[in-house]
Write a protein that binds this DNA or RNA. Sequence first.
DNA 1: ACCATTTGACCGTT
DNA 2: AACGGTCAAATGGT
Length: 277
Amino acid sequence: MVDDLKIVYIDMMNQAARFIQFAWRRHHTRRLREWEQKKLINELTHGRELAELLQFQLNTPSFSSLHDQAREMLVQKIMSSYEKVLHMLNFNNSSSSTLDPQLTGLMIKSPTSLGMSSWSNLDFEGSVKDPLDLKDGSKKRKTLPIRTVIVNTPPGAGLGEMLEDGYSWRKYGQKELLGAKYPRSYYKCTHRYDKGCLATKQVQRSDEDPTIFEITYRGHHTCTRETSTTIEPKQHNIYQKQQQPEPSPLNLKKGLDIVTQEPLPSLSFRPPSPPPR
DNA sequence: ACCATTTGACCGTT
DNA sequence: AACGGTCAAATGGT
């Protein structure tokens, strides 16, 4: 849970950084167009909401108070980060819908000079660094569950429907692999940013039998809501190749909405407590 | 205007 | 240096 939110958070911050950098470099002091800014603000706003959810969850009586303290610190970092970014972007809301170029410049050149401590791990040549990696030597990064399925094409089916699995994916890359005849395609869940869904898949057409595809999924879909029309993935012609058990059994069934949907056992449900400032 | 895909560049690991 | 994964500008579609 915490790890997942961290990933989304870093992802979003990186995107925000890249976005601002892009706007800065290409248009120099040009103004961001309204829709550009709106998009960015929407993303950041949602990220802040996620952080609030996390904070609420952390108000739950703890198992290990030590970890909870670290978590709480992380939450506060996240929250203040978002507050500051949003504030910067909203700076001019009252007058016009443009991003103040001077402010942008300051952000890039000397983020700390404005007291933006949580931007200090943002360098604009690189990206956001994971704050917990700095102090903790535990390198448990590959925690996302991986499962690979072999799918073969039904005789009459076309390629398109063959690759349908009930989820919506956005292709973000394709690569010719070393000894392979066919390229490998890379997909992210369409709701990576609007719902923080980290699911990913790779599709690899088989060398020897081109009707066979090897599809590797990693991560859960946290984007599905069971409001009426949850689509179950089609299970035709699928052979499970390998399966990894869930590392985190107690959460993430329904993703980051867990607080509102599936309260933890210890959490007798109550309305979200106002987050401490 | 908005969105997804394409595709070479880029980047981290080995 | 090479490989595999990801990014993002260009492109094409609605």
